[in-house]
Amino acid sequence: MFHATLDSTSTWKQIVDALATLLTEVHFIVSKSGIILRQLDSSKAAMVDLVLPAKIFQEYDCDGNYDICLGVDELNKISKRMAGDDRLEFRLDEDDNRFEIKMIGQAQRQFKLQLLTAPDERTKKPSLEFDAKAEMFADAFKQAVKDIGVVSSHLRIAASGKTLTFTGEGDTGEAEVSMKAAGDESVIFHLEVSAKPTAMYALNYLSEIAKAMSTDSLTLQFSENKPMLLEFPIAEIGSISFILAPRVERDRRST
């Protein structure tokens, strides 16, 4: 049995928008403690990691472990029908193999989505340690991604001391955006750096993620030529993270 209610449609929309950037199918794992999702996108170069503790929901009842697998397009279409002040109710109908979403507002509307077959294996998380960690305004990051995107198809990040630098180069030229973590005006609230890591990431993923960002702040972590982690808070105690594998200069197959 799984049943939960959520007062904020904007939280739900934020989640669905974020998932839709990289996935075509979503695989929620629902348990007593809350809902999690961990999936690779179809290129395996990116991972989404969603954590929604039970406390985010106003009511939350779950007596076991369930896999809820849904098509993103279908989920997205339903979410678009939500009105701002609707209250949401979710229920798993095990007999009919359906996921129910109820929108309770001026009218009570109910949608039922057929469950897809869940994959046999659950995705493991890569064990990552980071040399740089920055907490910053989400908009500053979004603008940096757009700036670099003008000339380049990939973005290089470097951190050293109090500075975070984004650079890119393409056939038409180069671009550079740098941010200092100092003073009250800074777009970076907090920056921790050990060593001087630099790494490069594909912009096609980053632009998609940046487009879907709806939080004020984010945490960015990365290491030298290792995956980058972008984390966004959801309703204070929840979070959604994107992990992005780096691009390397020399042929990755020869390493």
Binding site: L40, S43, A202, A245, R252
Partner: peptide, 10 residues
């Protein structure tokens, strides 16, 4: 040839 995969780091 240049994009690594998350699975390379597992």
């Amino acid at each position: 040839t240049t994009q690594t995969l998350i699975t390379d780091f597992m």
